[in-house]
Design a protein around this nucleic acid. Structure first.
Lengths: 219, 219
DNA sequence: TAGCCTCCTGAACGAGCGTTTACCTTGGCC
DNA sequence: GGCCAAGGTAAACGCTCGTTCAGGAGGCTA
């Protein structure tokens, strides 16, 4: 079953819509995604994953070295894509830190709404990876945090941001962590059936973030 | 079981400082706390927990019916205490929604900094409980969220809050979720060795939250 | 001292885990 | 056809899990 030979590996992203046409390795990734998200990595068994895509346990090891590698593959691809999107969003937003921050939050929130399963897995299950595999993902997260810190720093220097101070000093790293926490965890509770659509969520969060950093409304 | 005659049950919290004088059931709770926090419920074994307090695996079942009940015991006590603290904080803050929200955030953040291990366990491991055990904890969380929603609602009605709108309407539940997310997850990254102390964290978060809801500075 | 109660030990149980292995089927190519 | 590589199956491996249970140590009370 699910016998595919033809689908070329070099033509863009796999399409999630046509389930049967997907090569086995993609079906495994997708099934693992869904199950890790719903029940968590340690309690999802290799047998569960493979049964969900109509295969037996042993077949996993034709595509991945281990269950661990499967999880890393999933998280790393999601995380890399997120970092790239964030960088592009900021780069394409001009020089104004307010526009940069707004573009960042919009991309970040929309992605965490739309791909909330992937985000949820990436954020919740990373701890199960061993140290060697986890390091590059942590690096990517620091990179994203540093994007925010950089925007905040420039915004403060140029006077368009006035974020909260503690004992008279800014702690932009703490503020960046808090803002990212807030935006990241939409994936924990956002559902398409809820009151707000993705773009509305993005607008809401953008306004909240701009308020937190004390963005001046206009020059 | 867990029959204690000497340490009075009616005199406050157990003291975490004197480890040896603690009755076994308390030692088990403490060891489980620490290990669940560090490595996660499903990978911490009964043998791990009991070894950490100098006992063998079988002894657990003199104090708890199962590993599951142990986790529920831990989470429920933490959650109940949190709900009580939040209610008291709001009740003791007078009638002004701004003061109520500030008091709420302060208590909530300080607690999530100080008892971050407990908070982390309660928030991350709850999914492992079966449905029957998890329901009262979810109820408590909804209750806490509703405290915030109530404060926001009264603040908006009385004109001291002007939170972000989406398409002209408020979505106070979404905003309450976002604010609680932010405050809850300090427990994921706050460390006593960091740049900010608990009270400074509380001040920072209070100011951020008041900014988000658009609190008027004075009457 | 005898009896009881509390609590712990240490071995055992059955189940389920990730992974390995031997073997089978399929399709393309000479 | 014969061969090969890819990728599947199903059984088995060694291990660890949560839990149970018979038995024993130690401290009360009578």
């Amino acid at each position: 079953m699910s016998k595919r030979k033809t689908v070329g590996a070099g033509e863009g992203l796999p399409e999630a819509t046509e389930r049967e046409a997907r090569p086995p390795v993609e079906a495994i990734r997708a099934a693992a995604f869904a199950q890790f998200a719903e029940r968590g990595y340690p309690v999802v068994t290799v047998r569960d994953i493979m049964k969900a895509c109509g295969l037996t346990q042993g077949a996993l090891y034709n595509h991945f070295k281990s269950k661990d590698e499967l999880l890393h593959d999933i998280i790393a691809s999601t995380q890399g894509e997120l970092e790239r999107l964030c960088q592009e969003a900021v780069k394409g937003a001009g020089a104004d830190p307010r526009a940069q921050l707004a573009a960042f939050v919009r991309v970040y929130v929309v992605r965490h709404c739309r791909l909330r399963i992937e985000a949820l897995v990436a954020n919740r299950e990373i701890g199960w990876l061993d140290a060697a595999r986890v390091s590059d993902i942590r690096r990517s997260r620091r990179a994203i945090r540093d994007i925010v810190v950089t925007i905040l720093t420039r915004g403060v220097e140029s006077g368009v941001f006035d974020p909260p101070r503690v004992d008279g000093k800014h702690d932009l790293k703490a503020i960046a962590m808090a803002l990212l926490d807030q935006c990241t965890h939409v994936s924990m509770w956002y559902g398409p059936g809820g009151d707000l659509a993705e773009e509305q969520m993005a607008k809401l969060y953008t306004e909240m973030v701009l308020r937190v950093v004390g963005a001046r409304l206009q020059d």
